[in-house]
Design a binder for these strands. Sequence first.
DNA 1: GGTCTCACG
DNA 2: GACGTACGTGAGACCG
Length: 939
Amino acid sequence: MSDSETGFGKGCHLHLIDGSAYIFRAYHALPPLTRKSDGLPVGAVAGFCNMLWRYLGENGNSSDAPTHAAVIFDYSSKTFRNDIYDLYKANRPELPEDLRPQFPLTRDATRAFNLSCIEVQDYEADDIIATLARQAREAGGRVTIISSDKDLMQLVGGGVEMLDAMKNKRIGIDEVIEKFGVAPDRVVDVQALAGDSVDNIPGAPGIGVKTAALLINEYGDLDSLLARAEEIKQPKRRQTLIDHADQIRMSRRLVLLDENTPLDFTLNDLEVRDPDPTALVDFLNQMEFRTLTRRVADRFGTEAPALPDPAPATAPSQDSTPDMPEFSAAQYDCVRDLDTLNIWIDRIRERGYVAVDTETTSLDEMRAELVGISLCVDAGHAAYIPLAHRAGGDDLFGASALLDGQIPLEQALRALQPVLEDPAILKIGQNMKYDAKIFANLGVTVTPIDDTMLLSYALHGGLHGHGMDQLSDRYLNHQPIPIKSLLGSGKSAITFDMVGIDDATRYAAEDADITLRLWQMFKPRLHAAQVTRVYETLDRPLVPVLAQMERHGVKVDRDVLSRMSNAFAQKMAALESEIHELAGESFNVGSPKQLGEILFDKMSLQGGKKGKTGAYATGADVLEDLAAEGHDLPARVLDWRQLSKLKSTYTDALQDHIHPDTGRVHTSYVITGAVTGRLASTDPNLQNIPIRSEEGRRIRTAFVADQGNKLVALDYSQIELRILAHIAGIDSLKSAFRDGHDIHAMTASEMFGVPLDQMTPDVRRQAKAINFGVIYGISGFGLARNLRIPRAQAQAFIDTYFQRFPGIRAYMDDTVEFAKKHGRVETLFGRRIHTPEINTKGPGAGFAKRAAINAPIQGTAADIIRRAMVRLPDALAGLPARMLMQVHDELVFEVPEDSVDETINRVRAVMEAAAEPLVRLDVPLVVDAGIGDNWAQAH
DNA sequence: GGTCTCACG
DNA sequence: GACGTACGTGAGACCG
């Protein structure tokens, strides 16, 4: 070796890269990528190149940059160790078929990066590394071995260090001692005793690393130990060492690296050279690695060569299900280090899209903690990144300790953030609003997105639900792992952070895999189903809008609710004793069954009707009838029920929903919650806060504006009737709306021939009921019940109505006809609502008809407010107004006092013009506004 | 878990 | 001619 002043020596720094380890890691971490032009498998080469590129980037400008470097490979799987022990590494799985042809390409890649590429027949890469490390050490230089292979740890010390590139962790003497319990020079002794199942090194049966280290530390080294084996106290251990001494010695020969591998070059030949940009770009281009080629070309300022156009990102064809691998053959990786994560990130960038799923500790996004993230870019190959899994409960202290082998959450997040926020990379999820909120909590804005739940909603609204399990079963014929199987259910249920990482990987990666497959299937179908616009303008854009509303929440005054709860409790107690007295016995007023028996059996009141379950009906309508006949008990029960409802559902339950940190209530809107296009609000439902009764309405006073702010509520006036007038083309209704007339009074006047100036409240009330009935698909029975009039009279009203407004009848008939023919109806904006029951016979037929009649009206109104909501963030830009709630035809905002007027002006303008320009309604949309310190005032 | 009841638009 | 029915939701309580 050259010790001359010009050659390798003191001050020099040699990097030895374990190339074979790189290749296997790249292969197993990446989907089976092939070269577009000829199908040559190149996935491992791609990963390998990415790693080398990153290696150069990290070391190029570092003050600790290597002066010399080499990439070392295994020549073949057969080495001199097979002559020592024919079973050495005999349990290794067969080399994958598509990996072997990539071996020569990785050598080419190394040379293209202008790195020395080294392999020696009959020797392992580890022997070459050992030899070069020894030479460098003896020459007085430093060595960094880039590998995490424990078999190389025997080389550490005397200026030799290892670098675990995955964990970006240096391995020095201390780390080796931590791992093996002995210094590097005794590592082979420990390994010889402990053996190694991966390399099929027998060692001493029953002795592991811990015991081996104990023994070596006690006896000094392996030879001394074996020589003095008789002295070992434990009989079994003593016998093992005596019986297997030869096997142990052989094991040591297997693990001991050969520091004298014959080499036909010197360290001086390994001097670092800059890559030749042209050669490198040429090679990458040949491999057809688009992203990396461009990146390298950019870096060196060379022209990226022209490449043929890639296949479109959305490869699946229009009319056929894309070929997908079987789920049984799917590969789900667990990503435990940054290097592997970066491989996935590169893969995502290469593709331009990725299916993402988060696993958390709660379904409530405001309380949920991120536990892990899964990714998928190719059907059948997904990854799970565990981040916050914790030890199970057995260990007294372990319960809160993070498990090892997880990338620190913050690091993983910062690595993923550029991808999640990259406008050129599509993030695909199932119910992305959930995941987007989880990421938003961590400061990451996920955009742009696609959502398989919303795709299904646009495509299949009315046909079935859009949960992932359901979609997977129906469209992929695959039943995903039930979450219950991991978490259990009921009281003993655990949170996801307590799930083992292996189980979690299978579950979470599968979810991302399923999501990607559903997306590949659904996305190309939007056009054929003519719902692209619905999805892209009405549904998908709502995700960020709702996410922000939900995260912001609405301030709720706990004291107001608490005081009301107490008041309700007192009143209920008084009513309860009164009711028991009237009944002559004590019973559970809240039990419809017991109440029915009291009313109709014990008290023998008339009108007792049993439903299909054999229980008496005791609904409000029944009790009201009885009360009207002068019975006190049902009247008291009605009062009690109202209070009970208000207390349990609102004043009590709402308090539990006040977030401890924000002091606000954060609902969750379900975009696919109603088939018509309406939203649904859950946990809690803020769309059914009382208003009709005076007592209930007071609950709204607990919904307050923050200091210095006002609540502003804007709602569409009569929007569904206006839409009906437009769709059915009723001229008289349209002109009444245009002229701003009282629509119910006008209807009454038309129907009953009463002049407007002589209109009575009662006649108007009846007309109003008819107007609403029409929207719901009117029936004589329903109207009769609603108005409490004889059915014949109700039917007469309806007949008159249809005579006066024949367009309504025509609309209803046409709509049902359309539904029967196409199995669906549509809103003015093209939303399709399927009506699979429309052709069934029997009692269901009436239901389906009325639903079909109602859906285009309710749905069009829902579409309109969706359009307004999507436009509002831009329209309110620069204003401090916050949108808080949506209640079907109403939007509620929180606004600093001095911005109230401007906010109302802008919101009203957006809401009133929300149908345009796509639809020009023949009637104006009118929006009423209210302002207050609380929601009751604002309405 | 199904049924009943009731809160909203 | 009889049969049940207003449309769309979510949640709490009861009960088997």
